[in-house]
Design a protein around this nucleic acid. Structure first.
Lengths: 241, 241
DNA sequence: TAAATAGTGTCTCTAAGACATTATTTG
DNA sequence: CAAATAATGTCTTAGAGACACTATTTA
């Protein structure tokens, strides 16, 4: 090696994922169960999926996040962004550690939870509207990481098209509106919602309708664009005067 | 130690800072010069200030960022937020490395650049409006980190009160508007700007005026609030129709 | 009084909020 | 037809954009 690396002791580095979907009319996050062995911290506790960076096989942080995502869900999510880094002396009993948290959105149908191989038991945990996490303790500081991810999601939903990534490829405008309402925890005006979505040129009509027990609804899909759309205004409810 | 840590090799971890101010009617970022020794990469190149985490003395990432900030500028900045983490096998010739980048805003007057002790030569580098960085090569991938920081700053300035942190404690509304214009690279409407700022209850009048060669301007300061204000709409210019 | 910048007023326009109304299906 | 949800229309309102106009200082 050409350069000397300094004598600083290196922290542990992991990547964790907050993977969200909408199921059963509620926001949900994917949790995995930690192994039940005495030499691992928090045995049997539920945690966000993640783990150590493997500097042999991961060429960068995003690649590591994608690998973990693939291991847990078996799919490529339509949306993956970095949330941030948490590092401290206290957060892991094994020593000074840093975790890079990524934040993924996916349709509920795409998930195939696999318990086996190096993946432990996994489940979707419900996040009630108004709550900032699941109603249980999580391993490490994962409750805090999850709260930050939920806050980011709720914040961005006010002015972006993110909820579209929580739905299956084909959806109706009512379903999209419902996804917004579930995350925001408040009803939106149908008329304003629809003009906003249509003016943004976000979605395109499909030559199909969803038929249920009443008037059929037009099906749409996202226009081919990888980037989410940013609306110029938030969905703020009129203040009482 | 109670737990076994796994056999993964640990990456190098650093914290870097993008410290912005407004000076000479322009946005500027603080750069430091790397040491001129053969066992350090990028000798004499300019870089964002930063360095290795010291897990002996830094209790968490933010503390580490604050320590580096203090070392470089000698002040506590009024605004410091995490920008994100960059990690890859290639970004540092010494091996797989991660940097956590923080993003600070400060008034120009507060800075006292110190070359000496463990701080190398330092200077403010101008960022022209429209450009995504300084017009020169930087060490490591710092040009990319800086471009991301500038993009985040420009994006947030559209809908937040961040530019107020770039000004000295007392300022006029014209100076605040000018800070917005410098970062956004376009003029704003004076009337709309003033009503927006006043309606947000962001600033408070001081019993003083700034006297120059013409009509004196009312001086204001930020109301005591640590959090930046988020406006419900962006400053988007009317589209040509 | 001229120059310069501070600060206000007026009119328009866009898009959201509130809420009513019409449309289209099944049972 | 009733029930249910889809989809559209109308009116109001908040706040930005454009731009003119007034105000207050120094030279």
């Amino acid at each position: 090696m050409k350069y000397r690396t300094r004598d600083f002791e290196r922290p542990l580095v992991t990547v964790d994922l907050a993977i969200f979907t909408v199921r059963d009319d509620s926001l949900a996050v994917l949790l995995v169960q930690r192994p039940d062995t005495a030499d691992e911290p928090f045995p049997r506790a539920w945690a966000l999926p993640g783990g150590f960076i493997d500097i042999e096989c991961d060429s960068d942080l995003l690649a590591c996040a994608r690998r973990k995502l693939k291991e847990k869900t078996g799919v490529v999510t339509p949306y993956l962004e970095q949330l941030g880094g948490w590092g401290s002396r206290k957060r892991d009993p094994r020593g000074w550690s840093i975790t890079q948290v990524y934040f993924a959105l996916m349709p509920s149908v795409d998930v195939e939870l696999r318990a086996g191989a190096n993946a432990a038991a996994a489940r979707w945990a419900r996040i009630d509207s108004g709550a900032d996490g699941v109603g249980e303790k999580l391993a490490f500081d994962h409750a805090g990481l999850l709260a930050a991810a939920v806050a980011r999601l709720r914040g961005k939903v006010e002015y972006t098209s993110l909820p579209a990534y929580l739905l299956p490829e084909e959806f109706t405008l009512s379903e999209l509106q419902r996804a917004y309402e579930i995350i925001l925890g408040r009803p939106l005006e149908k008329s304003a919602f629809r003009t906003r979505v249509e003016d943004a040129n976000l979605v395109e009509k499909l030559p199909r309708q969803r038929r249920t027990t009443n008037r059929p609804a037009q099906l749409y899909r996202l226009r081919e664009r990888s980037e989410p759309f940013f609306f110029p205004r938030t969905f703020s409810p009129r203040e009482a005067s």
